[in-house]
C-alpha cells in the first residue's frame, strides 16, 4: 500500500529515543499541522460549492496517509465541532491512480448531520482535518464484468462517480448502464460524468421513484448485469430482495458493518447505570445500551472515529472490525464491539 510521503520515515526510530515518552511527530506537528503520522491528517486544498448545499472538497494528506484505494471506497473525515472531534465517512470521487495523492470528496449538508452541515457551512482552503484511511468493500472487481448496472439515488451517487471515472479507459470492453434518482432537477451533481455515460436521470418529485418494475423497463437486459447500488436503506432493501428473486449479482453500499463473527453474545452489565441486558453476538454494545436505555457517546458507528470508546471492566469483547478479542481493563469501541460471553462495561 502506498502512503503519502513521511518526512520522518528514516529518522523516527532514532528521534523517538530523544522524544520519549512522546513521538517526534508530537514536536514536528507544532511546526506544520500536516507533519505528524500519529493521527492521519489532511488539509483542505480547495472547496467548490454546488447547488443544494453540496460541496466538493479536495484534501491534501499529511505524513504517512495510505493513498491507494479502490474506486468506490470511502475515507473518514474528522473535524472538531464545538471542541469535539466528530467523524463521518465520505466516498472518494476521484480516480485512484492520480499521481498527486489528493483525495476528492463530495459532501451534502443533510438534516441533523452535524458534521456535514458544519463542513458545508465552514469549509475553506487551509482548514486541517483528521483522516481515516480509505476503506470499504463497495468497489469494482478485476476483471470487470461484461455488463454493469449502477443504481443510485441522491448523494449515493458519489462512490459510483469514482468507479465511472476509473473505467474511462475501459469503456469499450464493458457495457455500462446508470440509473440515478434525484428529488429535484436542481439537486443533480456530477451532471457531466453522468451525461458522459448516458445515465438515466429520474426526477422523483416529477416522475416518481425508481421501483424494481421501473428499473426492469429502463434496463430490459437487467438479468445479464452485475448491479451496484447505493442510496437510501429502503431502496437498497427493495433492490436486494428483487435481485435475489431474479438471481442477479448485487453489491450495495450501506456504510455499515459486517456483523458475522464467532462471538456468542451474553449478558452486558452497564456498571455505572446498573443496567443489565442480554444480547446475541451480532448486537453491538452501543446498540444494546441504547435498547436498554443507556446512552453512550458515539460518532461514526463504524469503528473509525473512537468516539464511543469505553472501558471493558470484565469479560471479553469481540471487535467486529479487527477480529480481535479484547481483555478486561482494555478500552473498547462499543459501536463495533460485541459480547463474547458476559461482560461488564464502565458506562
Amino acid at each position: 500500500m502506498t502512503e503519502s510521503p513521511d518526512g520522518l520515515a528514516r529518522f523516527r526510530g532514532i528521534l523517538r529515543r530523544f522524544t520519549t515518552p512522546l513521538l517526534p511527530d508530537d514536536y514536528t506537528v507544532l511546526a506544520n499541522p500536516l507533519w505528524s503520522k500519529r493521527e492521519l491528517r489532511g488539509k483542505i486544498e480547495s472547496v467548490e460549492r454546488c447547488p443544494d448545499d453540496t460541496i466538493h472538497l479536495v484534501i491534501r494528506p499529511g505524513w504517512g496517509v495510505p493513498v491507494t484505494f479502490e474506486a468506490g471506497q470511502y475515507i473518514g473525515i474528522g473535524l472538531r465541532v464545538d471542541g469535539r472531534y466528530t467523524w463521518r465517512s465520505y466516498s472518494l470521487t476521484n480516480v485512484p491512480d492520480t499521481r498527486d495523492g489528493l483525495f476528492s470528496i463530495t459532501i451534502r449538508a443533510v438534516e441533523k448531520g452535524k458534521l456535514s452541515t458544519h463542513l458545508v457551512g465552514t469549509a475553506r482552503p487551509g482548514i486541517n482535518v483528521r483522516l481515516a484511511a480509505p476503506a470499504g468493500d463497495f468497489h469494482l472487481t478485476d476483471p470487470l464484468p461484461e455488463k454493469l448496472l449502477f443504481v443510485t439515488a441522491g448523494s449515493g451517487v458519489t462512490p459510483v462517480i469514482a468507479m465511472l471515472r476509473s473505467m474511462e479507459g475501459r469503456r469499450d470492453s464493458t457495457d455500462i448502464k446508470v440509473v440515478h434518482s434525484v428529488r429535484n432537477r436542481s439537486d443533480l451533481i456530477f451532471e457531466d460524468v453522468l451525461a458522459d455515460y448516458d445515465a438515466h436521470i429520474q426526477v422523483t418529485s416529477e416522475e416518481g421513484r425508481v421501483s424494481p418494475q421501473v428499473l426492469e423497463k429502463l434496463v430490459p437486459d437487467f438479468r445479464e448485469r452485475v448491479v451496484y447500488a447505493c442510496g437510501p436503506a429502503t431502496m437498497l432493501d427493495e433492490l436486494e430482495s428483487w435481485a435475489s428473486d431474479n438471481d442477479i449479482e448485487i453489491r450495495v453500499e450501506r456504510f455499515t458493518l459486517d456483523r458475522a463473527s464467532d462471538a456468542k453474545g451474553g449478558t452486558i452489565t452497564f456498571a455505572r447505570q446498573g443496567v443489565q441486558t442480554t444480547v446475541d453476538g451480532a448486537t453491538t454494545i452501543l446498540e444494546a445500551g441504547e435498547a436498554a436505555g443507556v446512552q453512550m457517546p458515539f460518532g461514526c458507528r463504524m469503528g473509525i472515529c473512537q468516539t464511543c470508546v469505553r472501558e471493558l471492566v470484565d469479560g471479553h469483547v469481540h471487535d467486529l472490525r479487527t477480529g480481535d478479542t479484547k481483555e478486561p481493563g482494555s478500552r473498547i469501541r462499543t459501536c463495533v464491539g460485541v459480547a463474547a460471553g458476559d461482560v461488564v462495561i464502565d458506562a
Binding site: 515518552p21 512522546l22 493521527e39 472538531r80 472531534y85 466528530t86 457517546p297 460518532g299 470508546v309
Partner: peptide, 15 residues
C-alpha cells in the same frame, strides 16, 4: 470528551 486520540486517557504516556 474532545474525542481526540492524541489527548486521551487511553493513549497518554507521561514524562
Amino acid at each position: 470528551w474532545m474525542n481526540d486520540p492524541e489527548i486521551h486517557s487511553s493513549t497518554w504516556e507521561w514524562d
